[in-house]
Design a protein around this nucleic acid. Structure first.
Lengths: 126, 126
DNA sequence: TTTACTGTCCTAGTTAATTAGGACAGTAAC
DNA sequence: GTTACTGTCCTAATTAACTAGGACAGTAAA
């Protein structure tokens, strides 16, 4: 895995798993890769993966069964959707609005976003 | 200044000055605070500010006159608008669209952004 | 009970970011 | 030339993130 600079690796690993949970690639009750397995796979140290898993356990999105492994907790998706949405609305959106202002961006610049939002809304109606 | 974790201080200082340039608080030709002055003001080390200024000099948004200080370069704003917009469109927007999808966000969640974009467009017409 | 997984704890070493502050040189006003 | 700014270079020390890998304990199946 290619890790970007400017963001800690253990957070990026957490983000990757969170994304897999939100997209449904990982379902509640699923076993996530063992600490050692993922470490080898991503070419990082065991301890770094451990740190990601500890973070996710603290967030209540995975459960830990000693000697067996880590599992996606039953309410992970609901918890994450709520948590990430709140972070987005309170932290990212204000910064985004400000940036749109100073960069004088126009609706056309956000076409891709509009399309996605409309798609979400249509799926909601059905 | 309160620095957020997860992002290097010298980058945050650069971001702060970039914002002041984009908002017009700092104009082309303006002298920016001296390295020592800003270090005291933000309660960081001289070297950390130096690193921010070196970064901005490398980006071509400030000019350096030895023994005198750093100055906002004449084309800083144009250069920044272009640079930041490109970063936004190529890096942030795709991530944003993806997040909007997995979090099933709706147009209403982005009302503040829409309002700003419309405002930008109206100012453009006048 | 042995085997092969699992997580967990531990010490040790590296690197980058940051701090701390001395020392030196360019610039300009007095 | 002295003074008071400016940037610049330097060494030393601290901290957090990451690496490396040994050692130990829980779990489950052969």
């Amino acid at each position: 895995m290619e890790f970007s600079e400017g963001k800690n690796i253990y957070v990026q690993i957490r983000d990757r798993l969170v994304d897999q949970i939100l997209t449904g690639m990982l379902l509640p009750g699923d076993k996530i890769p063992s600490v050692r397995e993922l470490a080898v796979d991503l070419e990082v140290n065991r301890n770094t993966v451990m740190r990601s898993y500890a973070l996710m356990e603290q967030e209540g999105i995975v459960d830990n069964r000693r000697g067996i492994g880590f599992f996606v907790s039953s309410n992970a998706r609901q918890r994450l959707t709520q948590e990430e949405k709140e972070i987005f609305l309170k932290q990212e959106l204000p910064r985004l609005v400000h940036q749109a202002k100073v960069l004088k961006m126009l609706p056309a610049d956000f076409k891709d976003l509009f399309d996605q939002l409309n798609e979400n809304q249509n799926e909601n109606k059905q």
